[in-house]
Simulated scan of single mutants.
Amino acid sequence: MTARLVDRKPVIPADQLVAQLVPPAMFNEVSFDSYIPDPAEPSQAEAVDAAREFARTVNQKRNGKKKLFGKKNTVGAGLYLDGGFGVGKTHLLASIYHEVPEPKSFGTFVELTHVVGALGFMKAVEELSGHSVLCIDEFELDDPGDTMLVSRLLTELAERGVSIVATSNTLPGQLGEGRFAAQDFLREIRKLASVFETVRIDGPDYRHRDLPPAPEPISSEELEERAARTEGATLDDFDELCKHLSTLHPSRYGKLVDGVTAVFLKDVHPAQDQAVALRFVVLADRLYDASIPVIVSGSKLDEIFTEEMLAGGYRKKYLRATSRLLALSRFGEQARATS
């Protein structure tokens, strides 16, 4: 019988939350040299140079800290890589991570907020304050609480000498726009912006260059047959899985899909509400991090987030998740063609 994600109830001890903040396996071998800038997009080569220089600065600051012998640490450096989906921001972020000394951390913005929530603010500061760098992927501010939390965290860490590099598709001064009353938190948002030097990366989403549209869903019968003959795969009803996600803290979603070779979802349909959609976004990120193919019956994966949702404040988050889900669905289609 094919395994189900809904039967998994992963637990992550608090002392492992920071330890698991590392780049996804798909970025284990990336480097500045393996990033191939698009000649038609000069900002990409400029971004590589800026990322290299940032890594050099982090190393210099780290060496300098060792010579201070108890004196006050210098303030950490800050770099903000801004650009659209699929222009290689995470590649450069992981390259920086690989170039600097331990201890260091790499996680998405959502993962970071989950870690702080699980550990408590002061414990999180204590755990991260000795790091050479904190790499934050897909920086985003979805509510006032996150704004205050992250602003305070980054200020504390920067003052303790931790360098910070982040990626996003929203400029620092525009974080929070369209999601809440940003003017009420303008001081905090400006404080965040002041931490970073911003570098823009332009270009089309590499995940969809010259690629066909999303694969068509298959029948439920074929879905079950393929799942049964795919070693390490899981098969779940879409609604049951969405309900199960609501019972787990999002910091556990990565552990939920650990070791899974392919995810088969039955009777996929547009999400019923924002809470369901946002949880599925987090799951999509963890599936993408692990390069796990996704095969579905029912609706296409680019139909999960409704037009109403795409018109709201979480638009960029939903578009990023859709981009990643389509890439994963093509992995599934390629596996089908070779099986």
Rank of each mutant, 00 (worst) to 15 (best):
E111H: 07
L79C: 08
V195K: 12
L278R: 02
S34D: 10
P42E: 13
R336C: 02
R209E: 10
M26C: 06
V75E: 14
A25S: 13
A77G: 14
E102F: 03
P217V: 09
D302Q: 05
L175D: 03
G298P: 09
G176T: 09
V296K: 05
G232C: 06
K104F: 05
L17D: 06
G64Q: 12
V294A: 04
R320G: 07
E216L: 08
K316E: 04
V11E: 13
R229D: 06
A290S: 11
G203F: 00
V268C: 14
E127Y: 06
F264K: 08
A284I: 02
R320Q: 07
R190V: 14
A321T: 07
A40F: 11
Y35G: 01
L186N: 12
G203Q: 00
V276T: 05
L149D: 00
A182R: 15
K67V: 13
T170I: 15
K255Y: 04
L248R: 08
L241H: 11
L235K: 07
D267S: 15
F331L: 15
F238W: 10
I292A: 00
E127R: 10
R190A: 10
G70H: 02
L328D: 02
D7N: 15
R187W: 09
T247I: 05
A47H: 06
D33H: 09
P23G: 07
P24D: 10
D210E: 14
G76P: 08
Q174L: 04
Q174D: 14
L21N: 04
R8T: 12
S194A: 13
E102Q: 12
A262W: 01
D49M: 06
A3Y: 02
K9F: 11
S168V: 02
T198K: 15
Y35P: 11
L278P: 00
E231M: 01
D49E: 15
K104E: 11
P172S: 08
G298D: 03
T261Q: 15
L149V: 00
R200E: 06
L245C: 08
F109A: 11
R336L: 10
K123T: 15
S299I: 00
R187L: 14
L287R: 07
E138P: 04
E127Q: 11
S129K: 14
G173D: 04
Y35N: 07
A335Y: 04
L68F: 12
Y97R: 00
D302I: 05
L326M: 12
E126Q: 11
A181M: 13
P217W: 06
T167L: 00
R320S: 03
M1F: 12
I12Q: 06
K71H: 02
R52Y: 03
